[in-house]
Write a protein that binds this DNA or RNA. Sequence first.
RNA 1: GGCGAUGUAGCUCAGUUGGUCAGAGCAUGCGGCUCAUAUCCGCAGUGUCCGGGGUUCAAGUCCCUGCAUCGCCA
Length: 644
Amino acid sequence: MTTYITTPIYYVNAQPHLGHAYTTVVADAYSRFKRLCGERVRFQTGTDEHGDKIVKAAEAEDVEPRAYVDRISAMFRDTWPLLEVQADHFIRTTDPAHVEVVRLILQKVYDRGDIYFDEYSGLYCRGCERYLTEKELVDGNCPDHLTPPQEIAEKNYFFRMSRYQQRLIDHINANPEFITPERYRNEVLAFLAEPLADLCISRPKSRLTWGIELPFDDNFVTYVWFDALINYLTGIGYPQGPHFDEFWGAAEHLIAKDILKPHAIYWPTMLMAMDVPLYKKLHVHGYWNVDDTKMSKSLGNVVRPRELVEAFGVDTLRYFLLREMSFGLDASFGSETIVARQNADLANDLGNLFSRATAMVWKYRDGCTPQPDPSAADDTLAGAAQAMLLDYRQAMEEFRFHQGLQAVWELVGIANKYIVNNAPWVLAKEPDQARRLDTVLYNLLEVLRLLALVLRPVMPGAAGKMSAALGYAEGDPVVSLLAEGGRWGLPAAGRKLTAIPALFPRLEVAKGAASTAAESKGGNKAEPASAGEQGVIEFSQFQKVSLKVAEVVAVEPVKNSHKLLKITVASPEPRVIVAGIAEDYSAEELRGRQVLIVANLKPAKIMGISSQGMILVARTMVDGREKMVLLGPAAKVAPGSTVS
RNA sequence: GGCGAUGUAGCUCAGUUGGUCAGAGCAUGCGGCUCAUAUCCGCAGUGUCCGGGGUUCAAGUCCCUGCAUCGCCA
């Protein structure tokens, strides 16, 4: 059996955030699970590097697109090892091999008559890199970027997607597992119930040069779909590489729900036009809501994977991501929830079980695996372990990671009860119970071994430590392969344990003074824990403020206001901020300047303009008048750099 | 505006085809143990299963309707 699992290639107009981390960790855990099952696995991730937004972001940093994408792509590649993600291949859409195959495929589809030239006109938003419909506009502006779209009429190449609509509907109906969870399958079918429009796949070079040139018309570059989606093929050496033959038939794509349509509709129809078999499965997951506000790049309340690892540790973070989200649905992300999981599940239940069981083996049997009494009836524990293995495997197979982990933790609970029920500390006091104590301890070590085995895909680091503590060499099949290790009672007696420090220390949390203060006056949600002292805030409260360095890109006066300026900054993604500094700064003085902004302020409408954040200034008195002085970094830094 | 999903204990959620289905985890309170990371084990709760109407011997579980939230589409 083989498995080919992919994440989307991430667009390099922003740094890695929680959403990227989740998708990538899931793919990694799945690939590790498949390896645990003994399958041959290829796991691919990478970066998407062409397009309008990249050019703009590069301009904002005053560098060439190539240098810009190299830098951001490296940030992604360097992030994954921190999360103990091990991909077999990291693809970039600027890889020469990818570019070459994209052109080959475009030519092939063109020759088959599925790409045609036509004129299109509409309202184009540069920020979105797409045409907007009249109805989408808010006050004549793009609802996402709050800038007016441009009327553009141009000729472009189109992919005859409509030709494959019925075939795709038939395929989805015939293959219930093609798109899961089911809600997304239904969504796609609902969308396909309407006639499908053809897909614009090019941009004239007059407007965009940072892309792959069409092989049949060098006045155009291809636009997103025939570039990005094809990475799944080029990354395994389509059309002739050996990996392609081995892995394409086993391709499973993992995506977040925002890119459902391209993957569930564009991509399969493209494959049909290319005469390549469709991928096997599409797994769709939901969003993480951070502090009850939807994560959004433009709001800036993103969570950096690196910071999360530093704060919680990679094992806890991976466990949390997989345990807390019901795959497919949205979930909320908060540090209190992570700490709760860490303490309840990892420290108290699992970590303490590991600690108390091994401690007794050390204390009563000098750290050596004892010989169990084969006639002893401890079937319930062994049976529970076998049941766990079945449930776990089934759930992991079906991307129900939270349920897989639930099954594992059921066994943890059963083992903790087993200890209390058998009271080894009582057995140890009675010499004639030595045999019984041996058996109990052996059984506990078996539970620990199986836990280490099944947790390997989720927490590779912790599972490795557990295995080592139990005396297994790294890579021993008994703790790294389900087929070899997934049975009860395998190890022989006499194995020497290795002492290790606590696996998951409890995280102590400063208890909020006001958490019990029953502040029920307003009837609303409790105020954020107001600290005992007036005006003093918790560090955690300060952490909620996202401060960033942003670079001023454009400045416009605000009508009917002598104080306000509408300032567009790059952070590095563009955002509009209305600031009351016109009396102290002119547009010329501002342009190109780096300033500090609060990046996660709730957007506010000021004079009819939505302001996404605020620019920080020092207020000082000059000649009896308040003057504002902009704050900024002492040296030039990359726009979007965090401030802390 | 159209289609769809969701609304169950303080919180997060399970609840297959209608008949012990009123549950789990966390949080809370009480009791027990001492091997263990002040951990573990046991016990105890509270719920108008969103509101209203209907089908049925019987409905969180089906139908209609209203409200709320969310998603997709236009």
